Amino acid sequence: MNPKVSICIPTYNGVKFIAEAMDSAICQTYGNLEIIVSDDASIDGTLKIIETYKFKTSIPISVYHHEPNGIGANWNNCIKKAKGDYIKFLFQDDVLIPSCIEQMVNILEQNPKLGMVASKRKFIVEQDLTSDATKLWIEKYGDLQRGLHFKINKNVQIIDRSLFKSNEFLKPPIKNKIGEPSAVLFRKSITDIIGFYREDLKQILDYEFCYRLLKKQDIAIINENLVKFRLHHNQATNVNSHSNISDYKTYNRILLREYFWCLNANARKRLLKKEYKLINFLFKIKSKLHGK
């Protein structure tokens, strides 16, 4: 029997696109699946639509009601409820290509040293986000592995922890070199080693998790679009980017604390310089407040 894969769908008011996501889940060419839905108190018809799919497929569908506590908590609830050997996230507004899970599982089954596999992704751009700015975003973020120098063999690129020492790791404009959760599949057992997604983060928790994993095991990238990633006005990434979320400001501190000795010498110097400037600035503010 092929190992079980848990398709994890964290939801919140996803009525507009959830049917397309569910259709792509039940049409996978891979057979041994379960679908885990963790819902953050949706008030639209999301759960009603999901319930109809229990009559459209023999794939077990389990729906769990989750008390909202941030997106990371909902993602983690999916993982904790999952019974599969592998975790395959599918966000409510994204779509899986039919062979997505089959191809990803085959890669991991062939190489036990891999902890995660990701793929390239296509973009579905909704009309409310069609603009020159969106086109520019896709040009910058369309290929997350652009500029990396890991060899591609049989359409698969293996990324190891030497990524941290490369000049490309901290090179703008992109920090995520792996992929969004809908574009990755990983062994559930890795959470026993590295833990779950950080629930104190709102914007960078996906690739922070990937990099923690990469410190322990290699990651494969399939050089094929196996996921359709939707861009629209109300998606979490877009909403968070216009909020006061400070994840990006704390990213340097995460790197200093968790990855400092993994980085090359120039990157270490730049991080220390940035941190010194921040500490010096805060010290001056504190001195002014105390009249010193």
Score class of each variant (00 low, 15 high):
Leu205Glu: 05
Pro181Phe: 03
Ser166His: 07
Met104Asp: 00
Arg212Tyr: 10
Lys216Gly: 04
Gly147Ala: 08
Ile79Val: 15
Lys16Gly: 09
Gly14Asn: 11
Pro172Gly: 08
Gln92Asp: 15
Ser246Trp: 12
Gln127Trp: 11
Gly84Thr: 00
Met104Leu: 04
Arg257His: 15
Leu271Gln: 06
Leu185His: 02
Arg187Ser: 04
Lys286Ile: 04
Pro112Asn: 11
Lys54Asp: 06
Lys175His: 13
Leu263Met: 14
Arg121Asp: 01
Met22Tyr: 08
Leu96Glu: 07
Ile7Gly: 01
Phe196Thr: 01
Ser246Lys: 12
Ile7Arg: 00
Met116Glu: 12
Lys135Cys: 11
Leu144Glu: 08
Lys286Tyr: 13
Gly195Ser: 09
Ile193Asp: 13
Pro181Leu: 07
Ile219Arg: 02
Cys100Ser: 09
Ile178Glu: 05
His232Ala: 07
Cys210Tyr: 01
Ile9Cys: 07
Arg187Ile: 03
Gly70Tyr: 08
Glu139Val: 11
Gln92Ser: 15
Asp40Val: 05
Lys171Ile: 02
Gly14Lys: 02
Gly147Val: 02
Gly84Gln: 02
Ile178Asn: 00
Lys83Cys: 05
Ile101Pro: 00
Leu114Glu: 04
Pro172Arg: 07
Pro181Trp: 06
Leu205Val: 04
Lys120Ala: 02
Lys216Val: 15
Ile59Leu: 09
Leu185Arg: 02
Gln235Asn: 15
Cys78Asn: 03
His66Arg: 07
His149Ala: 14
Ser162Trp: 14
Lys81Leu: 03
Tyr259Met: 05
Asp143Lys: 08
Ile26Val: 15
Gly70Ala: 09
Ile159Leu: 11
His65Gly: 08
Leu255Ala: 05
Asp143Val: 06
Ser166Ala: 11
Arg146Ser: 13
Cys210Thr: 04
Leu205Asn: 08
Leu136Asn: 13
Leu226Glu: 04
Lys273Asn: 12
Met104Val: 02
Cys78Lys: 00
Phe150Ala: 03
Ile79Phe: 09
Ser62Ala: 10
